[in-house]
Write a protein that binds this DNA or RNA. Structure first.
Lengths: 243, 243
DNA sequence: AAGTGGTCTAGACCACATC
DNA sequence: ATGTGGTCTAGACCACTTG
């Protein structure tokens, strides 16, 4: 008995988990780029010589892991990537209606310091792109960001006028560099403001501030951005649900 | 009640969603108390005149919502409630190995102030139980907590020696008051220390601190605890994953 | 050995989106 | 009208736990 195009299940692993892993591998490899549709579940099931329900369970797994989205009547699509997950969501500045704006204060190619290097998984001292960026709400500067980007990948951002970048970075990463942010992790902490950030935010040195350290990852799990965001501690608020 | 077909599906609602809602109602009503086992899925399916797979989907829904736990080979159990979700998890004090201890500084029956009343969903000024509690790590006071508890429910805690309560409150709520915490929500912010909390934590007035405001809810969705936790802002840290 | 949940099958039919 | 995913059925067999 032989299956047409079978997937090997490791011992102790269910058939649908093996199918999900195989599909995940193909998605990460780029067989179906972000935003495109997978074959119909019927076809996938037939290809793998498996019952429809089994393939559906595999696809449900991938949905839960954030790799695909299923739309009733339309199809199954590779998730296009995060677009609006700004650290601004951790702050309340009282002008909820106003659209956030962003201004690039500096863009330099510099040897990456130890901290950012570790987050990016590259050797310290490697040249990388460093951005200083201000986020504004209702013309008021609210957040100061330092962003490190690894350099072969983001070299197209090293030239051109940053004023043309728009207010969101992740769509820019996708369109200009082909980098899709699949997942991110923010570590929240507390510190006091000093130097350039204090000046940019028009707050006195020593002012208490909330710090959000972000690592952003692509589909393959590589860290493609290390970002530190600083904002007034008194405007910080975040809600956690426990179950 | 022994009609073979038990559950009405509202229009637009799937059969398994209706079954889940019906089971959820019975769980909240106390038909199966926390920790006890539900009937086998086979039996539940037969009772409701539904296929096994459909009942399984209903039970999967309830699992995802945190109402039940399924254990292979043993059965399906109503979740016993949260036990270890201390706000301590938001802080790093460098002595990870040490077991946290707690000390009740004050216990009073007082008219509940506006803020706590709103969180608890009761009228301001209603008598309620107020606790002041210190959390210690390696003999060092680390967190100061103010806890408001609604009074008919927690009256058994108004007497007796708080020194006998142990270090965890939620197991105490379950054993002494029959209250099981099913879900909680923490709102995180920053402020400055002052007065009693500053003194209890041996920190100077004006010191920056992290504030965790918690609402805890029982199975029925009633808020049964309003708690404010204060700790040194420099020890605060929290990780958020974005997908 | 008996009872439980977990996996898998091979269908049928429904609801939604698009042409 | 066609193709997509969503629901539901009625089984079979497997894996785990307990007496």
């Amino acid at each position: 008995m032989s299956r047409p195009h079978g997937v090997q299940a490791e011992p102790g692993q269910s058939r649908y988990a093996a199918l999900a892993a195989a599909l995940r591998t193909r998605i990460v490899a780029g067989d179906w780029p972000p935003g495109t549709a997978l074959p119909a579940e019927q076809q996938l099931a037939a290809e793998q010589g498996v019952a429809l329900g089994t393939m559906r369970r595999a696809l449900e797994l991938l949905t839960g892991q954030g790799f695909i989205e299923r739309v009733h009547g339309r199809g199954t699509f590779v998730k296009p990537g995060l677009s609006g997950a700004s650290p601004l969501r951790f702050f309340r500045f009282g002008d909820g209606a106003a659209a956030p704006a962003s201004r690039i204060l500096a863009r330099d190619t510099l040897p990456v310091p130890a901290g950012a290097a570790q987050q990016l998984g590259i050797a310290p001292g490697t040249p990388a792109l460093r951005l200083h960026r201000l986020r504004l709400l209702a013309q008021q500067p609210r957040l100061f960001e330092e962003i490190w980007l690894p350099l072969p990948l983001f070299s197209t951002l090293a030239s051109g006028d940053p004023a043309d970048w728009g207010d969101l970075l992740y769509p820019l990463f996708a369109s200009r560099c082909g980098v899709h942010v699949h997942r991110a992790q923010d570590v929240i902490g507390f510190c006091t403001l000093d130097g350039a950030p204090a000046q940019a935010l028009a707050l006195p040195p020593g002012h208490p501030c909330a710090r959000v350290q972000r690592q952003a990852f692509d589909l393959a799990g590589r860290c493609i951005e290390a970002r530190t965001t600083l904002g007034d501690a008194h405007a910080f608020h975040y809600t956690v649900s426990i179950t």
